[in-house]
Computed example of a mutant assay.
Amino acid sequence: MSYRGPEFDDLQPRRPRRGALTVAVAALVPGALLGWLVYEAVGDSGGSGGTPGQASGASASAHPSSSASPTDAPASDAKEPSASPTPSAAAPLKGRVVVIDPGHNPGNFQHTADINRKVHIGTNWKECDTTGTSTHDGYTEARFTLDVAHRLRTLLRERGATVKLTQDGDRPYGPCIDERAKIGNAAKADAVVSIHADGSGAGNRGFHVILPASVHKGTADTRPIVGPSRDLGERIAGSFVRLTGSAPSNYVGNGTGLVTRQDLGGLNLSTVPKVFIECGNMRDSKDAALLTSGAWRQKAAQGISEGIVSFLRG
Rank of each mutant, 00 (worst) to 15 (best):
H120C: 05
S310L: 12
S293F: 05
W296T: 02
L264G: 04
L33R: 10
R235L: 10
A181N: 03
V42P: 08
T271V: 10
A75T: 11
G238A: 14
A187S: 09
G160F: 07
R205I: 07
D114P: 06
P81G: 14
I100Q: 01
G227R: 03
P106S: 06
M1C: 13
A189L: 06
W125L: 05
S48T: 15
S45K: 10
T123N: 06
L264I: 08
G266C: 04
K182E: 02
A90G: 11
P81C: 12
V42S: 12
G307T: 06
A26E: 12
E80P: 06
P52L: 12
K299V: 01
A288Y: 04
G138Y: 02
G227I: 06
T154K: 09
A73D: 08
R261P: 00
R313A: 14
A73Q: 12
T256P: 01
G138E: 01
A24I: 15
K188Q: 15
R96I: 07
L232V: 11
R151I: 01
L269N: 04
T123L: 06
G266F: 01
A197D: 01
A75D: 12
S67R: 14
D190K: 07
A78C: 10
T135K: 08
R14S: 13
R261L: 08
R4P: 05
R261Y: 02
G50A: 15
V193A: 03
I210M: 03
T86Y: 09
G245K: 08
M282G: 08
D168M: 03
V98R: 00
E7G: 15
A301S: 09
S134G: 06
K126M: 08
S134A: 15
P85V: 14
C176D: 04
C128I: 00
K126V: 05
L258S: 04
P102K: 01
N185H: 09
T131G: 13
K126G: 09
D178S: 10
L243V: 04
S229W: 08
A26N: 11
A62L: 14
E278K: 00
A142C: 06
G19L: 15
H150D: 03
G238C: 11
P85E: 10
A237K: 09
D114G: 07
S66H: 11
D147C: 13
I195Y: 00
T123K: 05
S249M: 05
R235I: 14
K217F: 07
G5R: 15
L155F: 03
D137L: 07
L258T: 04
A89Y: 05
G138A: 08
I183P: 01
D147K: 04
I115M: 04
V29M: 12
V99T: 05
L258F: 01
Q167M: 10
P273S: 11
I277E: 00
S48Y: 14
E179V: 03
R151E: 01
S45Q: 13
K299I: 02
T22D: 11
N105R: 03
F8L: 14
D114C: 04
W36C: 14
I304K: 00
G31P: 13
P87D: 09
T219P: 07
E40Y: 13
T292R: 01
T256C: 03
T256W: 01
A220M: 09
A189G: 07
S66F: 02
N204T: 08
S229N: 09
P102R: 00
D168T: 04
S69T: 13
P228G: 12
P273A: 13
R261S: 05
P52T: 11
G227D: 12
S293H: 02
P64I: 04
A191H: 04
P106W: 06
V272R: 04
V215E: 03
P87R: 03
